[in-house]
Design a protein around this nucleic acid. Structure first.
Lengths: 218, 218
DNA sequence: CTGCTTTCGCTACAGGTCGTAGCGTAACTG
DNA sequence: CAGTTACGCTACGACCTGTAGCGAAAGCAG
């Protein structure tokens, strides 16, 4: 979903009859969207963030450069959409105990970060988002925040099993989710993308020890 | 220290009599180095990573663009040197107990990440480093690895106090240092730069709880 | 003081990317 | 059919990159 430029409706008030909007004129090619996003991911993997140019993507997608700009205002937004779908693969498995669930999610995330498209895009997008509040919001909505749901799911499952105590304060629970999320995402990203070392099963086990606390080691 | 281009010695074998090297010709202006690095930090804070150009830095430092390129091969290396010194401010305080030490270091790191120069540079450099092994190595040597020493210091101090058990296996200890380091650095960076939320004293306390484990909460 | 060497500031340049404008054509609706 | 919008193409100005060439400046050795 580009969802970038509303197709230039000259009267962009709250018209649009519920769902049957966009009637007039030649419709946008859905095939072009797919080709563009595929080309973007390919170019990211091959050329990296710095090597990716709008002109190059257009050529590779067999699309005019102007068509590209009609849908995405810049490289940043294009890459967000191209990469966001990759993060949908992450799922919370519910393997019957909290440790296995955590290790499974960490492993999935590590595999995702091992892909060249992801490596090329993720940190660069985060960096761009620092100076562009709109992009920052879009990154969080499309890439970051959906993953927080995994933490909530895992916690809820562990609480249902009796591994964790049920929440008493909703706000405290939300803060704990935030901390756990930043810890898992940040640590794995730092390990893979900054320290440049791999996520082995043993590392995952040790890191999970840290998250679970000495409850399980003693 | 630029340390980038050895001043074009035509015979660049292992000459250099120990330390009294570089005798001939006009010496490089040390003042220019300082002016360039200051200008780089200023421009980073004002314009961000994307807005920073070599030409702009040259103008701001009142230096010819060619002079800039004689010392640093590209923007990436220049920014590494400009930002690395900021990370030297981090110190391990040794406040008498592990919790206070951790919270102090986290707070220092959070303050550093609150500065606009750091925000503009850090993630962008990490992103660039992914495709450039030489840059990646330089970032780790100048920025990342020195901080690992803080973890070693803190652990040693805690062991001396009896808060942590002494190391038995050297390799296991090194792995634990790596994990702790990636966890602290990664989590704080993710919280500040990706989630975009501040590091409050309460957050620091909760995060330290996580690091120390339920030992201290119960 | 006189060469020798290297840096310095300046100008100019080719190469590449960006993002937009203009045009004729294609596709879809009523 | 007319009306509307998307498409492909070309061209363009603006900007940044990194290098080359020049004369002048700042050191050092004799």
């Amino acid at each position: 979903m580009p969802a970038a430029q509303p197709p230039a409706s000259p009267d962009s008030t709250v018209r649009e009859s519920a769902h049957a909007f966009r009637a007039k004129g030649r419709p946008r090619s859905a095939a072009a969207d797919l080709a563009i996003l595929d080309a973007t991911r390919e170019a990211l993997a091959e050329l990296g963030w710095g090597g990716l140019t709008m002109g190059h993507v257009a050529v590779r997608a067999k699309v005019a450069k102007t068509t590209l700009y009609r849908r995405w205002p810049s490289k940043n937004e294009l890459v967000v959409d191209a990469v966001a779908s990759l993060f949908d693969e992450l799922v919370m498995p519910d393997l019957g105990n909290l440790r296995d669930d955590i290790e499974a999610v960490v492993t999935q995330f590590a595999d995702l970060l091992a892909r060249p498209e992801t490596q090329a895009a993720l940190l660069a997008l985060f960096a761009e988002g620092i100076r562009d509040p709109q992009l920052h919001r879009r990154i969080r909505e499309a890439i970051v925040d959906p993953q927080k749901h995994l933490v909530r799911q895992g916690r809820a499952a562990a609480q249902a099993r009796g591994e964790l105590e049920p929440d008493t304060d909703a706000e405290a629970a939300a803060q704990e989710v935030d901390i756990i999320f930043d810890t898992i995402a940040g640590t794995v990203e730092h390990r893979v993308l900054v320290s440049g070392e791999p996520i082995t099963p043993e590392w995952t086990r040790r890191f999970t020890d840290l998250l679970l606390g000495p409850l399980t080691t003693g």
